[in-house]
Nucleic acid binder design. Structure first.
Length: 640
RNA sequence: GCUGCUGUAGCUCAGUGGUAGAGCACGUCAUUGGUAAUGACGGGGUCGGAGUUUCGAUUACUCUCAGCAGCACCA
């Protein structure tokens, strides 16, 4: 039979030959490192017989697909180890994930960290035994019956839910076997030693909190021990960038038990916050927005009208005045903005109205979801609502997306750091299907017109409309939703917003909800991690430290400081009785971008020694030149 | 909210059924120095909170609060 290789070459092999035979046919050394095959585009076992005319690519250990298979195999081996050590534990699912794998087990007693060590040791035994993985095709009903009979109820359920057309395959490694689509490595030994069990956690069966909670064990797995080590080192490095740690070290903010989920901003952190806020303010002014400020405390009746009370009332902070009066602390700004809109008559000529607010919101987020300043209970949205006519939706969406990407770029997140998703209608929602069709299509068209790559995610939209989500990733790979654009036909209806059209009749405006940073707090957290605290000069809370070498030139040091401040630089002075090495180390650790060192020579010549953070050398220039230069460098992206 | 783990000085952490220790940080003194740690001395803790057992609890147990990881949630 003829087999086509990726390079187009055709090889002749006897009937019944496998991908492994093919690899051997090509070269012995290839066969040694091959672990699977891509047959007609699908990953398959090396030991499956090929068919005539198949297109086959041999997957070797160094290919990305290999890692996925290694991780999946590690999950199987872990499951065997767990069932050997803890009889009665049921297996459920165990996929490969980014950097590793996990397996969910059903067991009444949770696993302890000590259990993990034992499981890992057992896994190494199974790997050392180098048991071959073999594939078997089972009859669907027999498989269900079999798994039920041995008490593996979850496996039986999984098979039951597989489509009728799916072939039921079982993979065996020695005496142990598991339902699995495959493919697998030729044998357990091929997994190698580049893995480590990381942690235990609870996880709901099928990801639903209404279901039983399973015990999930996470592991990381790599091609070899060197790669594993590299990964573990990267994790340590990421920890050093953690915004919670840098926030403390750089004196940006702190959190404490008494106000769980709220932030105490310190002077440096608040400077950073205001710099960011002012940048956004300048941006939106430039794009024709007006800024408003609306109440924190709003009678619950407004949220009942808007529909938020039904959806989220239990997560709102409430202020009960008397038996009849209950206020909610606003969890978002939209209903309030509609109130501002509703004051006075609006003409079609007034639209679009782009109404912005740095809106302070509070939500009683579940305790387990709180995370540093990224997920908090008190936060500020760089929020805005664009009230417009239907025929303006496209233009407004495009205008917004353009500004959004520009802002991310200015803040150090070029396009490749941003993931865009289009979240479609959820099960529980307001508005008719017709309206949703229109809304979803509107956003889809806008994204396409803007030439932006996006992924559609079903069921993830807000109750009043679909949304475009802009996602950024933090230091340890966690993904956070920041910017958003939501198209809403529902709230204007519920809160009775209208305008007088060209025809003299009342019409409903469309509302575009949008935020670029999302929450100021979250965005600052992401920026801290993104820059490892080393902010671009215009954002750095403290831009310059003027440090004297000895106290003899204190007078000149003060002169330099005054010049910095006069130029609008955020500057501080260090004339402590410490050595210059000590001062440089200290301010470097606090990530101050610039230091102006002055000693005897500088004082005599009216110069400064300019040292940049992390720099090896320094530049001696006149004070006047230095100030002019830094003033230019410290300009915001909008000023440049 | 759920599962597991954790909570001792500002930070990182050690330790014990008989009222606690290190390094760094902080303070004082000496030192006035050229680009990532000068030296000496010193101060500092109701051992997250409440309760139970005990002659005695920071240590054991219960409850509670908070944090961490994951899951779920995220208008």
């Amino acid at each position: 039979m003829n087999i086509t290789l990726p390079d187009g070459n055709v090889r002749q092999l006897p009937q019944g030959a496998t991908a492994l035979d093919l690899a051997n046919n090509i070269s012995k050394s290839l066969a040694k490192v091959s672990i699977a095959a891509r047959i007609d585009g699908e990953l398959r076992d090396l030991t499956l017989p090929l068919h005539d005319g198949a297109k086959v690519a041999i997957i070797t250990r160094d290919m990305p697909e290999a890692l996925e298979i290694i991780r999946h195999d590690a999950a199987h081996i872990m499951a065997e180890a767990v069932q050997a050590l803890y009889p009665g534990t049921q297996v459920t699912i165990g996929p490969a994930i980014e950097n590793g794998f996990y397996y969910d087990f059903a067991r009444d007693t949770p696993f302890t960290p000590e259990d993990l060590e034992k499981i890992e040791a057992k896994m190494r035994q199974i790997i050392a035994a180098d048991k071959p993985f073999t594939r078997e095709v089972w009859d669907r009903n027999k498989a269900i019956q079999h798994f039920e009979s041995i008490g593996e109820k979850y496996k039986a359920m999984i098979i039951q839910d597989l489509p009728q057309t799916e072939t039921i395959t079982i993979y065996r490694q020695g005496d142990w076997y598991d339902l699995c689509r495959g493919p697998h490595l030729p044998s357990t030994g091929k997994v190698g030693n580049g893995f480590k069990l990381m942690r235990v956690a609870g996880a709901y069966w099928r990801g639903d909190a209404k279901n039983a909670q399973l015990q999930r064990i996470y592991g990381t797995a790599w091609r070899n021990e060197t790669e594993l080590k590299t990964h573990l080192t990267q994790l340590e490095e990421a920890e050093k960038r953690d915004h919670r740690r840098l926030g403390r070290e750089m004196e940006l903010f702190h959190l404490q038990d008494d106000a769980a989920g709220s932030i105490f901003w310190h002077p440096h952190g608040w400077t950073l916050y205001r710099t960011l806020e002012n940048y956004i303010r300048a941006r939106i002014q430039h794009d024709g927005y007006v800024e408003v400020k609306t109440p924190q405390l709003v009678n619950s009746s407004m949220f009942m009208k808007s529909g938020h009370w039904d959806m989220y009332g239990d997560k709102m902070f409430r202020v009960i005045l008397d038996e009849e009066t209950m206020f909610g602390i606003k969890p978002m700004n939209c209903p309030c903005h509609v109130q501002v809109y509703n004051q006075g008559m609006k003409s079609y000529r007034d639209l679009p109205i782009r109404m912005a607010e740095f809106g302070s919101c509070h939500r009683n987020e579940p305790s387990g979801s709180l995370h540093g300043i990224m997920r908090v209970r008190g936060f500020v949205q760089d929020d805005a609502h664009i009230f417009c006519r239907e025929d303006q939706v496209m233009a407004e969406s495009l205008k917004y997306c353009a500004m959004q990407m520009k802002v991310y770029e200015d803040l150090g997140f070029p396009t490749e750091n941003v993931n865009i998703k289009l979240a479609l209608r959820p099960d529980v929602r307001g508005g008719t299907d017709e309206v949703w069709d229109k809304a979803e299509d509107g956003l889809r068209k806008a994204l396409t017109a803007a030439g932006m790559k996006f992924e559609e995610i079903p069921n993830e939209g807000a109750f009043y409309g679909p949304k475009i989500e802009f996602h950024l990733t933090d230091a340890i790979g966690r993904v956070w939703q920041c910017g958003t654009l939501q198209l809403d036909f529902v709230l204007p209806e519920r809160l009775d917003a209208n305008y007088i059209g060209e025809d003299g009749n009342k019409h409903r405006p469309v509302m575009l909800h949008r935020a670029m940073l999302g929450s100021m707090e979250r965005f600052i957290g992401i920026m801290i991690e993104h820059f490892s605290g080393k902010f671009p000069l215009w954002l750095a809370p403290l831009q310059v430290v003027v440090a004297g070498i000895t106290n003899d030139m204190d007078e000149y040091t003060h002169e330099v400081l005054a010049a910095c401040k006069a130029a609008g630089l955020r500057a501080d002075i260090d004339i402590r009785n410490e050595k210059i090495n000590y001062k440089i180390r200290e301010h470097s650790l606090k990530k101050v971008p610039l230091m102006l060192v002055v000693g005897k020579k500088e004082a005599e010549n009216k110069t400064v020694a300019l040292r940049r953070l992390g720099g090896e050398s320094q530049e001696v220039i006149s004070l006047a030149d230095a100030i002019a230069k830094l003033k230019q460098e410290a300009k915001t992206p909008l000023e440049k």
